[in-house]
């Protein structure tokens, strides 16, 4: 990750000093792609979401003029609201679990491994991505199914009734989400711990802080940017993921993504689906803002405490 930053820096100096025109061209291409394949579709979706719904024609698009907010009223139906809440709850629980599992892993790789071993551990972290997503998920389905090895062990420990599997439960959904997005959490946290100099931890130890005190008052606050980056990305990706919940949770895995997908491709109600999509984006933006506000609030607490007890 560090080398990427260095390259990026080298690039910006190049553009700034010698070839401003070249730098502009380099930025222009991605910008055009972004405009054509992101901004334009979003505008299209926004327009669709305000179009009146006509049964059975061309995805429910009337083609006639006139704008309406009816589709947004549909978004707030009880079904959609509960699915929406489920999605957010799953994503929040999943990203918190990722944090709890990923932080120690990143910390271990960064601080306890020799420089020689670090790259190998990082490869291990992303190794699962080298096999197909579907194969990995189908593998989990076999392990978690009623006749699967994991279920068999749990059954023999009487934690599960005979003939019962873990598959198609909320636990399985969470497991699948965490399993899939863990590396996305580990990598930014790893980078933030790497950037923290060893001297900071040594200085804290030198100033009479026990290991846990050093962790809480130095390491954790200074790796906060990495935590927030990981949390935000993982949370957004989990909210939008509907394949994993469906594969692992079946009927119980109904997520907002599934709903939107079915409205687009099965319900043939594009205006409603568009309204749902935009609502999802809006709710995500609000949720991420709330998360980062909450995070920086938490981060400021120790400072406020120190100031108050000076």
């Amino acid at each position: 990750m560090t080398s990427i930053t260095v390259q990026a820096n080298a690039f910006s100096t190049l553009g700034g000093r010698k070839a401003a025109g070249f730098g502009f061209a380099v930025v222009l291409l991605p910008f055009l792609l972004y405009a054509a394949f992101f901004i334009a579709p979003v505008v299209l979706i926004a327009v669709q979401s305000l179009t009146p719904y006509v049964v059975g024609s061309n995805g429910g698009l009337s083609g006639a003029g006139g704008l309406t907010l009816d589709n947004y009223a549909g978004v707030f139906s009880p079904t959609f609201r509960s699915v929406f809440a489920d999605s957010l709850r799953n994503a929040l629980a999943g990203s918190l679990l990722c944090l709890l599992i990923g932080y120690p892993v990143a910390y271990f790789i960064s601080t306890r491994c020799s420089e020689r071993l670090k790259p190998w551990f990082l490869v291990l972290v992303i190794l699962p991505f080298w096999t197909s997503y579907l194969l990995r998920m189908l593998g989990w389905r076999i392990l978690l199914g009623a006749n699967g090895d994991i279920s068999a062990v749990l059954q023999s420990l009487h934690l599960l009734a005979l003939g019962q599997g873990l598959l198609f439960t909320q636990a399985a959904v969470l497991l699948g989400l965490v399993y899939n997005f863990l590396p996305v959490m580990i990598l930014p946290i790893y980078v933030s711990i790497e950037r923290l100099s060893r001297d900071h931890r040594d200085a804290s130890r030198d100033l009479y802080a026990r290991p846990w005190q050093t962790f809480l008052s130095i390491t954790l606050p200074l790796t906060y940017p990495g935590i927030m980056a990981g949390m935000t990305v993982v949370f957004i990706m989990m909210t939008g993921d509907y394949v994993t919940p469906e594969l692992m949770g079946g009927a119980k895995g109904m997520m907002v993504g599934t709903l939107i997908y079915s409205q687009f491709l099965q319900g043939e109600n594009w205006p409603l689906a568009s309204a749902m999509s935009l609502s999802l984006v809006f709710v995500l933006v609000v949720a991420v803002l709330a998360m980062s506000a909450g995070g920086s609030g938490l981060q400021r607490l120790p400072t406020l405490f120190r100031r108050a007890t000076r």
Binding site: S197, D199, H200, D206, L207, P221, L222, T303, R306
Partner: peptide, 25 residues
Amino acid sequence: NMVFQSYSLFPHMDVYENIEYGLRR
């Protein structure tokens, strides 16, 4: 106590809190 070559002051604390760190511990 040690003065490190890189100083390694804690960037998320002001000067007062940096100095106070050891006394609090």
